[in-house]
């Protein structure tokens, strides 16, 4: 807000009013505290459960403090090929992210900076793809992947997710507001389009690329239904399918199950905490299309 000088005494603005209050009303703190407890308690609870002995977990009413039974982690870790699941997930999520970045950069550049026939129709078509739910595609894609012998491979989990409407949309926005003079200057200097994209546009698009990469990576890490249907062997399965298998075989071992939940979710949470600003920026960016 601007603070231009005025002859009349200005009424206090909401923001000034907020700043003026040195102590905030007690209910504000109370709401904040209740929200934190409601949303974070399940995280605390799974850690407590994972660190108590099986007998302590089966006490009622439940124990609220951990008793440091690290042996649960050792037992859970040795009960399933977790290292393999982790490696598979990293490979799948990493390669999917890379593919999405490349396809989004290319398509976003075309939609944002070039003029060509049928551009609007094609863009509307790309956006309409979001309307088709994955659940609907399970049957035909299963048959397709079976017929090209991609069932139970890494490719079945990577290539179908190698393009993202969200990614294309975000980079189109970036290129729409990209200064035309920079492109023209690059052309005058004899830079090819490919070189312009790689050496000039890409470094400038870094914030958008990071946001896309984070969401694709997390989405790939958290994927369940698709890999569950399309794969059958732990040698190619990702972590969440492994965890669901573990739930199926060790469903009553609550301490081990909780330990597995903790160590399979920890990487996602660390990534989230490190890059929280970009995650929130991505959520804001998702609304970019609604402001008419």
């Amino acid at each position: 807000m601007s603070s231009q000088p005025s002859l009349l005494p200005r009424p206090r603005t909401l923001r000034q009013e907020n700043r003026r209050r040195r102590h905030w009303p007690w209910w504000q703190w109370l709401i904040g505290a209740v929200l934190v407890v409601l949303f974070l308690f399940p995280f605390y609870w799974v850690i407590v459960t994972s660190l108590n002995s099986p007998n302590q977990v089966l006490q009622f009413p439940p124990l609220f403090l951990p008793h440091w039974q690290w042996v649960n982690y050792v037992q859970a870790w040795t009960a399933a090929p977790w290292l393999r699941y982790f490696a598979n997930t990293l490979f799948i999520a990493g390669l999917t992210t890379l593919m999405v970045l490349v396809t989004s950069l290319l398509a976003g550049f075309a939609f944002g900076m070039m003029e060509f026939p049928a551009k609007q129709v094609l863009f509307a078509g790309f956006l309409a793809i979001m309307m088709i739910p994955t659940t609907v595609l399970l049957i035909p894609d299963y048959i397709l992947l079976r017929d090209i012998h991609w069932l139970n491979t890494y490719w079945a989990q990577i290539v179908p997710f190698g393009a993202s409407v969200f990614g294309i949309f975000l980079l189109r926005q970036f290129f729409l507001s990209f200064p035309r003079e920079i492109l023209e200057a690059a052309q005058l200097d004899g830079a090819s389009q490919a070189r312009f994209l790689w050496q000039i546009a890409m470094p400038m698009a870094k914030p958008a690329l990071i946001t896309i990469a984070l969401y694709v990576f997390i989405g790939s890490w958290n994927a369940f239904l698709w890999p569950y249907i399309m794969t059958s062997s732990p040698s190619v399965q990702p972590i969440e399918v492994g965890l669901a298998t573990f739930l199926g075989t060790n469903g009553t071992d609550w301490t081990g199950l909780s330990a597995a939940v903790v160590f399979t979710t920890l990487p996602v949470m660390v990534l989230f905490l490190v890059a929280q600003r970009q995650f929130l920026a991505g959520a804001y960016a998702a609304t970019g299309g609604v402001k008419g």
Partner: peptide
Amino acid sequence: VFSPYVTPVVATSIVWIW
């Protein structure tokens, strides 16, 4: 409030089953 959104559904739904 936002943090549960990034967690895998398989993992955190197991927490809630318990």
